[in-house]
Design a protein around this nucleic acid. Sequence first.
DNA 1: ATGTGC
Length: 450
Amino acid sequence: MQVDAYIYLSEKLLPYLEDEAIKQLTDAASLPGVYRRVVGMPDIHTGFGLPIGGIMATEKDGVISAGAVGMDINCGVRLLMTEIPHTEINKKHLTTLLKEIEKRIPVGVGKKSRHSGFKLEDVLKGGASFLAKKGYGLPDDLMCCEEEGCMPGANPDKVSSRAKERGDQLSTLGGGNHFMEIVYVAQVYDEHTARNFGLRQGNIAVLIHTGSRGLGHQVCTDYTEIMYKAAKRYGISLPSKGLAAVPIDSPEGQDYYEAMASATNFAFANRQLITYDVREAFCQVFNSNLEELGLKLVYDVCHNIAKFEQYDGRQLLVHRKGAVKALPPGHPGLSPRFLGTGNPVLVPGSMGNPSYVVVGTEKARDTFYSVNHGAGRILSRTAARRNISPDELKAQIGDTLVNVDRLGKILDEAPQAYKDVEEVIDTLVVAGLTRKVVQLKPLAVIKGEE
DNA sequence: ATGTGC
């Protein structure tokens, strides 16, 4: 190991720590140019290469790794806030909303876009910014996105034709842990910050969790193969195929960065077009307009990405896989919109459970200004399908409305397969890395079937 | 996570 590995866990979470996740994290600590420490979040669990809930920063002369970003490049979460009090919404509204949203946004593995006419090259270069400027967004959307909805350095020429063929999935949700949820602000912990983020106690909001779909998956697969072969030529001994890595300044490393930025923009555009479709669905169901309904973007976070950032006067490449950038109030890296508060961090819980909006603190410097991205798995997808029955899942999600009739199709997403998100967040609160802003409680959820 | 794969 070149550096130490730190993992943040409460006593309650300690039993869930897998030996394999520790190995993946310490493996990452052995890669050339890794800086200061590698970090595991309290939602850590075994992934491909770097564990999910892992952070690895590398210096200029160090490596870049596709597996340390993850299969779903720029998987992320966005939150839309409405002006609708949850007391004014009934079960019939919710049912109709789910139907109208599903009419517009295909859900589940392998689903294709209902939209056409967007040039993939524009999407890969421009992300959410391209769509918003085309009219698929509100004026303030972009300043409420990480990277303002467009990652610089994207070069579609570095995305393989096979990956591009899989790029016809704009405004699709996907499967697995991806979801859309109608929630309401159930509790406010920090009035000032909540107000600044536009979060009002009792109001309805929409949480969207998805990424770059098949395109990002293919980019990761392509470049893992390329890096795996090239590493030998650079004299890098790889601890595992999942951590295949090459020097940042090598042609392969540069190519991956440009392809990753392209896939990142695809994911931003996906969430932006979903937002457009969700807004349309709300307007139809409530027979109203966005001026009345709100549906303003609170924020859009990336949780699988590598970005160049400054620490200790050095430029580092911070790989976050299942971790969210959380800059504290006053940090020079913040956009003017969030300079006084820190950027909002969106942390979804498991199905039927609360989600949270939190912010980072000065102390989060210890984690390269990163906090956890969710609850974190306890059971693998297959273990969850084997061990949880549809009735047990139903008992856990309670009154939360679900679009999926056959609960047997989403057992891998049962809350029993996940840690308690509040325990996970409180671990970082106690460690001084984060502060809670609001709690969101679910009313209805849209999941894709396996 | 994923047109659920070598």
